[in-house]
């Protein structure tokens, strides 16, 4: 199995326009087993995305080190796919060209042509290959974006709330779709989400983070058999537990507005 991630004492801070510095990540250590699904959950703006970007190499950590299969992360690479919050498809390319972009960038498109068709079919976009992104719905674009991130067969897929902008039904369909892909190719997946249900439904482990600076508050193993029933007693128990911790972690601790 490949795709094991080790995060060791990672810290990162940003400098605001007014020169003050904000610590986004503080001394985070976390191990993610190969082929597992881990969710990062926590109040908004707490640095989940920063951690995800550090793993992808888009924004490197100031201190500490991240290893993917014992290789230190020094920059972005094709072994770690990234599904963005917005689909970020290139508007000047058709759906098929968009999905093939990563393969072409690496110069392996010719050998992997059939993979593109396979993934188009997998995300149910057959018949829309030659459409431009603006001609399709948000959900379809997000599916295309997922196919684009996956077609190069990365060891790790990092998901930055890719389902956040979708309606509830499309979202649930996509969740099943993602699980299917993960199961099929045993890809390690790390997902940032705000949705506790989504986290419990998808994850082997849920990592709860504290607000600024982000630290790991608690890691919860979800020991439910798959496929999971969203309404089952155990499911709801896990959900309640996470919500409790999140409250404790600081969300809504103080009223945001005073009258």
């Amino acid at each position: 199995m490949v795709g094991e991630i080790k995060i060791e004492n990672v810290s990162k801070s940003f400098v605001n326009p007014d020169k003050t510095s904000v610590t986004a990540l503080e001394n985070i250590s976390l191990n993610v087993e190969a082929g597992s699904f881990v969710s990062l959950i926590g109040p908004s703006g707490c640095g989940k995305t920063t951690l995800l970007r550090a793993i992808s190499g888009l924004g490197l950590a100031d201190e500490g080190q991240i290893y993917v299969d014992d290789e230190p992360v020094k920059g972005p690479g094709a072994d770690r796919g990234f599904a963005f919050q917005q689909s970020n498809l290139y508007p000047w390319l058709t759906i098929k060209e968009n999905i093939a972009f990563g393969l072409k960038a690496r110069g392996i498109y010719k050998e992997k042509k059939s993979d593109v068709d396979e993934y188009i079919e997998m995300v149910n976009l057959k018949g829309f290959e030659n459409s431009y992104p603006h001609q399709l719905s948000g959900g379809m674009n997000q599916r295309a974006s997922l196919a684009r991130a996956l077609v190069g067969k990365p060891k790790v897929l990092l998901l930055d709330e890719p389902l956040g902008a979708l309606d509830a039904f499309t979202r649930m369909n996509m969740q099943d779709e993602i699980l299917k892909i993960q199961h099929l190719h045993s890809i390690t997946m790390i997902m940032v989400t705000h949705d506790v249900d989504e986290a419990v439904y998808l994850s082997d482990r849920v990592v709860i983070m504290t607000p600024r600076p982000a630290k790991v508050e608690e890691v919860i193993d979800i020991q439910l058999s798959r496929p999971r029933a969203r309404g089952s007693q155990d499911f709801i128990q896990y959900r309640t537990k996470i919500l409790k911790i999140l409250n404790y972690a600081g969300e809504n601790k103080e009223p945001e507005y005073y009258l």
Partner: peptide
């Protein structure tokens, strides 16, 4: 960034 994640030069 999308291109970066594919390892584009």
């Amino acid at each position: 960034e999308v291109a970066d994640t594919f390892g584009a030069k």
